[in-house]
Design a protein around this nucleic acid. Structure first.
Lengths: 351, 351
DNA sequence: TTGAAAGCGGTACCAG
DNA sequence: CTGGTACCGCTTTCAA
């Protein structure tokens, strides 16, 4: 550690007591506590001369508040998450909270580690985007019970824990179910009958809503589902690329592919192109999120738009409200989505 | 703030002193200090029962070390920076340092704010990717002089401050000059004579090396530069899109466009397509960074590959070395780049 | 108008 | 083997 000037150093240099330094530095001088202008200036000069910066650890230890909230995001590689982080930041800036950002790289151990680390820092609140809730739920529940303000972004697995969850912390999540229904209706409306799904998630439950909507939509259209039409894979572009290959090798070939997110859809688009298929003439591709790139790639992506910044802002808003008023009943807010029809989907080719 | 169990609570429950709790929790029990297994277990049980977690602020206040380093990145919207952050994380994980990530959203005030905030937290070291060095250099120099371990990623403006800089902190940066020369040689070798440049940077100096290499390469090929061939713009995809429009409206039209990074190149590619131009038959496009998407878009991007994770790892390595040995002479490490020739560049169209 | 002093939650030295 | 205690840097009440 670096030796930095302390309050005591400033006090000595200015020839006052530490208390006085504290008053001046925190601007209490002007308000309640009358301090001579002359003393004040002596202190301020000493501060400047020494380059004194109050120690945030000590301040927070003493004052009991850190003025910082933590945000855990799963995966650096997906722009969708940064857009959420952006939203959180926007909301926080209006208040004057600092953000402590951590990313788990989709690693369950790191997820647990960071929740622990953030909690030990005694941050004022925590926003979690969990990848492996089943691994850390106990930890998270304990946190919640210790009355740490907590917001979970995204859904939780459908088991007993999830049921309790809503009583413990606030939640917000995009309405992926609606989104997936819209995507499917759009494709079915275009005459597609064989529709594949690239299901690229780190943890299966993460796409559960989209998967269910996919199946529900097929069924209500009287189309038959088919396990081979579901290509499960990882979360990288390359994974999406490979998974799409598996789908496009099927016979008969699907005429449309729904991809779990835009990043993987870029991979799938590449697959189609490299197989000499035209999009959307030979195969339609649609996905979720509407990251900025989606509108600019060629062909532009039909995608179910999640306003990620709004998700982030909502999470931050919920958290700030809870920090201010810890006894509020927990809320759960769904963020609506909107289908953006672009160039990657079109009428099903005639057989 | 939340009331959490403290060392004292544990001590009371276990019927021992606070010192003993500290020993047990920090595992000193096994090593130097022999403590009865029975006492140890009593303490551990109390810890578990109360869900006690040591307060990181208090620990660090006392121990003088935070075991945390800070990383400041400019822009959430560009995957390139996230890849750098990834590299930093990788390197840090091998040691057991925590990472405090902050992002400035290209806002000079936030940049200053975060440097201040991180410094007040008394982190053990700081890695900076600066967007507005001229605004914060004084602050940064003061930090450096206070012996805060510091690594600057990227280059600094070419003025007196930059000259001093190398004596104050470690630096690492991709060799964009070489990269740009390679890109230009590649295009000139393909017969291109009118080569545009989309210069989309938040702060002009940030692309200085690439700009200079662009001019140098033109000159040494006996081609004449032309200010109208340089389209200055912002840092979003949309900005790249617009800037490329300006270039492609020129008469005669440039046959190749060099774009300052891949993100903007995606915009430029979209411009060409929407103007009905074929890439690379009518116009070639090349850029910098090689973010993951670059290989998957259509056409795939010819780009000067910067191994961003290596940049991050290098920065972290430099920082950790300096933390361990603060008196090391500052180093400056250039990261080599490599031209990835893909489908977005081809022979210049015959006039 | 200013200062003395208690304490926030730990660590680690020294004594027993 | 265990406990008492000074101290890390700051805030805030209370007295002077």
């Amino acid at each position: 550690m670096i030796k930095r000037p302390t309050q005591t150093d400033v006090a000595r240099l200015a020839g006052v007591s530490r208390a006085t330094v504290s008053y001046v530095v925190n601007g209490l001088a002007e308000a309640t506590l009358p301090i001579t202008n002359e003393t004040r200036n002596r202190v301020l000069e000493a501060v400047k001369e020494l380059g004194y910066q109050p120690d945030a650890r000590a301040q927070s230890l003493r004052s009991g508040t850190t003025n910082t909230i933590g945000l855990l995001i799963p995966d650096m590689q997906n722009p969708h998450y940064w857009e959420i982080a952006n939203g959180v930041e926007q909301q926080l800036q209006t208040d004057l909270m600092d953000l402590l950002l951590a990313t788990t790289s989709l690693d369950p151990d790191r997820e647990a580690h960071f929740i622990e680390a953030l909690s030990r820092r005694r941050i004022d609140g925590l926003i979690l985007l969990l990848t492996y809730p089943e691994r850390v739920m106990a930890q998270v529940e304990k946190l919640a019970r210790s009355r740490m303000p907590l917001v979970i972004v995204g859904s939780l697995p459908q088991d007993a824990q999830a049921a309790k969850a809503h009583e413990l912390f606030d939640m917000t999540a995009p309405n992926y179910y609606d989104g997936a229904i819209q995507v499917m209706r759009h494709l079915i409306g275009l005459g597609h009958q064989r529709i594949g799904l690239v299901y690229g998630v780190a943890n299966p439950f993460l796409g559960a809503e989209r998967l269910k909507a996919y199946a529900d939509a097929l069924e209500s259209a009287g189309l038959q589902g088919d396990e081979t039409l579901i290509a499960r894979c990882g979360t990288t572009i390359e994974a999406g690329y490979q998974a799409a290959h598996r789908l496009l090798e099927l016979n008969p070939r699907p005429t449309a592919i729904v991809v779990i997110n835009d990043i993987l859809a870029i991979g799938a688009l590449h697959t189609a192109t490299s197989r000499g298929l035209r999009v959307p003439d030979d195969v339609s591709i649609a996905s979720f999120d509407d990251i900025e790139i989606a509108a600019y790639i060629n062909p532009s992506l039909t995608t179910s738009r999640v306003n990620a910044e709004e998700v982030g802002r909502t999470a931050a808003r919920l958290l700030l409200m809870r920090i201010q008023n810890p006894s509020l009943p927990p809320q759960s807010i769904r963020i609506p989505v909107r289908l953006m029809v672009r160039a990657s989907t079109g009428r099903a080719p005639s057989p």
